[in-house]
Design a protein around this nucleic acid. Structure first.
Lengths: 119, 119
DNA sequence: CGGTCAATGTCACTTAACATAACATCTATC
DNA sequence: GATAGATGTTATGTTAAGTGACATTGACCG
């Protein structure tokens, strides 16, 4: 085995490869970066380079989007700064929800909807 | 974990990354390919793309070269076609030799030298 | 309904990365 | 000292990727 260091964190993948591995468009990938959801490194020539962990993140974003979350929501989930609008329990519920891949048929942002739990 | 398939065999690394990971020059990497020692895939635009297994191979070549083998030797070692000039035992000896990283101070091709074993 | 916003597509233009080919160089070996 | 193996260097062309502006689509909202 090569002495390559941590293969999951080393930024060795150009955006073209990321497109293949995630089935996202370059536009999407760059937009998610603009929204502060991924932070690829740059080459000396300013080209983005991604790690396998970045791939994971992007696939996670893709999955969350498919589940009806907005990018803002996802950002909240990834960096739980000061959880204002929802209680911790609600966040946990969201994560459980996501984990079980249920509730795929809603419209709009789940966080904005408040999960439809308050009677 | 993403459904990325076999990460060791998937050709996702451009030559620039290979240069970083192996500390070889582009010239060397392409030359080894011309000598039939590595066989990267190509993108639609004809750019070489390497897998982690290719990295292994290149590092192996680098190591063998450092041990005094010629590219022709290494090719023989990698594809033992019809072993003519040396007996099986000699080849095994070569491999043992390589494995123990001994005899680093010789000059010329080890195969051409005949290992200095015949009295 | 008309407007706004979020997410993405598309186009134009520029630069970095990579490809090939030819020639140069250095070092053993014959 | 000519030859062959391994690599450096340079020139030139093509592909991949960068940014920025504008268009589009679909929800939502007053």
């Amino acid at each position: 085995m090569p002495d390559i260091g941590d293969l999951r964190t080393r930024c060795v993948l150009p955006i073209g490869t990321v497109i293949q591995l995630t089935d996202l468009t370059a536009r999407q990938i760059r937009y998610y970066e603009a929204q502060d959801l991924v932070h690829p490194e740059r080459t000396a020539g300013n080209h983005r380079m991604y790690s396998l962990n970045h791939i994971d993140t992007l696939l996670e974003i893709k999955s969350q989007l498919a589940d009806g979350f907005s990018l803002a929501d996802i950002k909240q989930l990834m960096h739980p700064r000061h959880r204002e609008p929802n209680s911790d329990e609600e966040v946990r519920q969201m994560l459980r929800d996501e984990l079980m891949n249920q509730s795929r048929l809603n419209q709009g942002s789940k966080l904005r909807q408040g999960f439809g739990f308050r009677p």
